[in-house]
Amino acid sequence: MAELHLYDVLVRPVVSEKSNIQAEDLNQYVFEVASGANKIQIKEAVETIFDVSVTNVNTMVMPAKRGKRGRNWYVRTKQWKKAVVTLADGDSIELYNL
């Protein structure tokens, strides 16, 4: 497997009510990341791209889900990796310009 490039680590910012609260109150920013990325890679990516210093990275794998629409129609979501990045005090990311 080819090495994961720095700019391929972060897939998208997660914009939701919860992530919003985290950003406002805890200075934590939520991203979907490449499923093969580890915490170190995520830390490096965020620090380089947004020019901030990262104090902590939590990752989790969000499970795939299957919902039903109608009798035999399934809505599937894929499994993805989420990273919650805590920034040092005073740093912030203008997420929504991404």
Binding site: V14, V15, S16, E17, S19, N20, Y96
Partner: peptide, 16 residues
Amino acid sequence: IPGFRRGKAPYKILAN
């Protein structure tokens, strides 16, 4: 707005 319940999105997100 996806990710938010109706009426719960903050001003900035809505403006965006």
